[in-house]
Amino acid sequence: MPGKVLIVDDEANIVISLEFLMEQAGYAVAVARTGEEAIEKIDSFHPDLVLLDVMLPGVNGFDILQRIRQHFTPHEMAVVMLTAKGREVEVTKGLALGANAYITKPFSTRDLLAEVRRYLEPGEEHETLPN
């Protein structure tokens, strides 16, 4: 069962790739470019998984994560942090706040997709990306 993915990132250039990848994988995709927009889309779009950047204009990624976890369990709404903040302490913080995974940029698209599938299609035999 394909799911719904919300991409939250203010960097347009990475959003292009993410959007394309998720659509190709068969997911319904929505994009938010600010924290406020993300909060709004979470309510309206009700995604199964959020790809969440930490550094956003306005409300930051950690704040959004906290809001999500007030209403949804990691099982109900998966959050994959996708960020340039790679310090160990920040990874720890993200996971402690309830992120399902913490991926630092630059990342392998293959790994990312595998991670997304792990949460959206558990138990299924995941096909790999075409080469």
Binding site: I16, P106, T109
Partner: peptide
């Protein structure tokens, strides 16, 4: 990280 992230994602997508 941010810039290289965008580049890598784009290249890999094109390759894939």
């Amino acid at each position: 990280r941010a810039a290289v992230g965008a580049i890598r994602a784009a290249i890999e997508t094109v390759q894939s």
